[in-house]
């Protein structure tokens, strides 16, 4: 897999230029990618859903554990996910409406369903499936279940869509045939 592949950007997505991207990456519509984040598709392609926000310094790495032998694994990330500043996410399956707060770490054995919030600084490494609407918080990584999913941040997205192109280089989306 050549690392010089250009990411596939759907129309309506906003991907800043100054970030590190390796491998086969696909962004859904209305996604926003800030500058200086790292997205690395080492073991296989990464596919982002719609309206994801990836903030500065976020690291999304597709690194399958060594004992998995599935051929050509794909990292699926659902829609409405927010990757906040300096989070590291290696989970191969991520549902919708999740929030990864700053400095959190999610290992590659973790599966994340829908509506989860990984709190700031929380570390999840063991093999586990986070049930729906789980909130991980605090220094002890305590878990609790929320009543409903976090609301998508439409106001923030509108502002970013307007402001980011004024100050950054933007990667061009692929023109649909």
């Amino acid at each position: 897999m050549s690392s010089k592949q250009t990411p596939k950007i759907s129309s309506g997505a906003l991907v800043c230029g100054d970030n590190k991207m390796h491998g086969d990456i696909t962004f859904g519509t209305n996604s926003i990618v800030h500058p200086s984040c790292t997205i690395s598709a080492e073991s296989g392609p990464i596919i982002f859903g719609d309206t994801c926000i990836i903030e500065e310094q976020a690291k999304i790495i597709h690194r399958v554990p060594f004992y998995r032998t599935d051929k050509n694994p794909v990292m699926f990330i659902g829609s409405n996910n927010v990757f906040e500043i300096d989070c590291t996410v290696e989970a191969a399956k991520i549902g919708n409406n999740n929030i990864f707060e700053p400095k959190c770490f999610v290992g590659n054995k973790v599966t994340i369903t829908d509506g989860c919030v990984i709190g700031a600084g929380c570390v999840l490494t063991d093999e586990q499936v986070l049930p729906k609407n789980t909130i991980v918080h605090g220094s002890g990584c305590k878990q609790r279940e929320a009543l409903d999913q976090p609301n998508p941040q439409f106001g923030l997205m509108d502002t970013l869509m307007r402001l980011l192109p004024n100050y950054h280089h933007i990667r061009k989306p692929i023109k649909k045939p």
Partner: peptide
């Protein structure tokens, strides 16, 4: 703001 507990819960 830490654990997202609300009075609605």
């Amino acid at each position: 703001l830490n654990c997202r507990w609300t009075t609605r819960d």
